[in-house]
Design a protein around this nucleic acid. Structure first.
Length: 347
DNA sequence: AAAGCGTGGTG
DNA sequence: TCACCAAGCTT
């Protein structure tokens, strides 16, 4: 009954023309599911198109340079997704002889693939039975059954998984899963759910009691801290900018950024002790605030012209000259990309 | 369990 | 301007 309502709605109103809904190979579905983690469809589409054009097959991705993968991920965020995608491609290419695993059990052992992503890959690409539980499905199910609590809590998540497990039909699993996500994204939205268009309104407990927006219960809110950093924008006579590769772990892992100091005086001290930098004074290029999910970052960017490349700034960090006119294929954090643009326009 | 991990859109 | 949050996974 439940699934018939959902699948019936899908046949009439579901989305069937998204880029990853054509030629639904496990590889293509996998890439789309990773990009779609915590990221909306409209944001993903251009990234997905570029990615598939560059890496049309798992083999191509496995043989690619990680810098090129991160380059195509620039601006999309959660860069561990890109690193895991590449790592997994290499793993499948070498350990699985290029055969993409097609069971949930095998898939969840791979880096970056959890229960829901594994279920999506299996159902959407093979049509096999597997439940999913992404943000959309959580919202729909939490409303239909008035599930209390935030789904970051184990108990709440377990209840929702149990519901997804029960409702997911053996037949037309792919249509059902896709429909549940579409429903959450287009009808059962967070702020103003469009219950008149919903195939589940007759069986939805939240709707019957007019408590649609009471569910799901929001994440307990916390005030996030403010951190600050000073960045050194060094430019050589060919208008190239000095970038430093960030360590693999932590924020912006593996991406290229300007050399960082804890504040302006630490940056100043570095320049003073450097024979090739000490004659000139740094000038303020920009102050900007960048917000992550877990903290605000106040960035001061100071620029300086130099004739020579400093041999090192931080221990074990690669340095490279970046030419904005002929950009290299490497990953850049979003605010760094903005700062680079600013240098080409203003200095 | 709770925190780390991005970014752009929205009201 | 700012809080909130969207197709989660890892530690």
């Amino acid at each position: 009954m439940f699934s018939a309502l959902v699948v019936g709605w899908f046949d009439q109103h579901g989305r069937k023309d998204l880029p990853w809904q054509k030629n639904t190979t496990p590889y293509r579905v996998w890439v789309s599911e990773i990009m779609l983690q915590q990221t909306q469809v409209a944001t993903v589409i251009p990234y997905y198109q570029r990615f598939m054009k560059t890496f049309p097959s798992l083999k191509k991705l496995a043989h690619a340079d990680i810098d090129q993968v991160l380059h195509l991920w620039t601006g999309l965020g959660y860069y561990a997704r890109a690193r895991n995608l590449h790592k997994t491609a290499v793993l499948i290419d070498t350990q699985f002889r290029g055969r993409f695993p097609t069971t949930v059990t095998e898939l969840i052992d791979l880096p970056g693939i959890g229960q829901s992503t594994a279920g999506a890959i299996v159902s959407l690409s093979k049509g096999d039975w597997a439940p999913i539980l992404d943000g959309n499905v959580k919202r729909v199910l939490a409303r239909v059954h008035c599930i209390e609590g935030w789904y970051g809590h184990r108990k709440t998540a377990d209840q929702l998984w149990a519901l997804s497990h029960c409702y997911t039909p053996k037949m037309r699993t792919a249509a059902f899963n896709q429909a549940m996500m579409d429903l959450g994204a287009t009808v059962c939205t967070r702020g103003k759910p469009n219950c008149t268009q919903c195939p589940l309104s007759a069986v939805c407990l939240a709707h019957q009691t007019q408590q649609e927006t009471q569910f799901p219960q929001p994440k307990p809110k916390k005030t996030i801290p403010i951190k600050s950093v000073s960045m050194l924008v060094l430019r050589n006579s060919q208008q190239e900018l000095l970038l430093e590769q960030r360590p693999p772990m932590g924020i912006w892992g593996g991406l290229w950024s300007f050399p960082e100091f804890k504040d302006h005086s630490a940056l100043q001290a570095y320049c003073q002790q450097s024979p090739i930098l000490k004659q000139n004074k740094v000038k303020l290029l920009a102050k900007l605030r960048h917000t992550f999910s877990h903290y605000h970052l106040e960035i001061e960017a100071w620029y300086l012209d130099t004739v020579k490349k400093p041999n090192k700034i931080m221990e074990d960090r690669q340095l490279t000259w970046y030419n904005p006119k002929q950009p290299s294929t490497l990953g850049l954090p979003s605010p760094i990309q903005k700062l680079i643009k600013k240098t080409t326009e203003e200095i």
